[in-house]
């Protein structure tokens, strides 16, 4: 398994992205989003934020403020597969807490539940778990999204099956 970190966006790529957003309102958010997407590990490393600051003239503190405000932005390398567990009220009442605990246990990350953080990435960078507030799919609770696909009425057994498949490098979805 190859866990080496792939190179982040180059200064040239970042400049191109900045130019694409030139003059558009809220450009910085768009720039951060596009740069994060272009990163193989879907995150914003420190050096990348420094380049964005240098070329947009936005202070580092401002950029970091923005990047820490929106949970969409990642400051740590993300796993190959991203699992979002809804912790909204409806999902909570339908057992999303237990689902999250089981999932964390399955991926050796139970400790993260105690930290108050809302995200955890496995050591092998295979999986990232994140909690979100609501998908707006409350009727289908509990809801989990795996690599962008929403699964309704999720159970631990079903989740375990999907994860085992993904861990083996199998097909992305059921």
């Amino acid at each position: 398994m190859n866990t080496s970190v792939m190179p982040a966006a180059s200064e040239q790529q970042i400049l191109e992205i900045i130019n694409r957003f030139q003059g558009k309102p809220g450009a910085l958010l768009g720039i951060l989003e596009t740069v994060q997407e272009s990163n193989p590990h879907k995150y914003l490393p420190e050096e990348t934020l420094q380049l964005i600051s240098k070329h947009t003239g936005t202070p580092l503190s401002r950029i970091y403020s923005l990047a820490t405000f929106y949970s969409f932005f990642n400051l740590q390398p993300q796993g190959e597969h991203i699992i979002l567990v809804c912790r909204g009220t409806a999902c909570h009442t339908r057992g999303s807490r237990v689902l999250l605990e089981d999932l964390s246990c399955l991926l050796d990350g139970s400790a993260f539940l105690e930290t108050g953080e809302n995200t955890f990435t496995t050591k092998d960078k295979k999986f990232t778990i994140k909690t979100v507030a609501c998908f707006g799919q409350c009727a289908l609770a509990p809801v989990v999204s795996i690599d962008g696909v929403i699964y309704s009425r999720m159970t631990t057994a079903r989740m375990k099956g999907i994860i085992e498949k993904l861990a083996k490098g199998g097909k992305k979805h059921e």
């Binding site: 934020l49 202070p59 580092l60 503190s61 401002r62 950029i63 970091y64 403020s65 820490t68 405000f69 949970s71 108050g116």
Partner: peptide, 14 residues
């Protein structure tokens, strides 16, 4: 600047 959100908000550096 103010970093983070909600109860985790705090004034901090880059």
């Amino acid at each position: 600047d103010i970093m983070g959100r909600g109860t985790k908000s705090q004034v901090a550096t880059f």
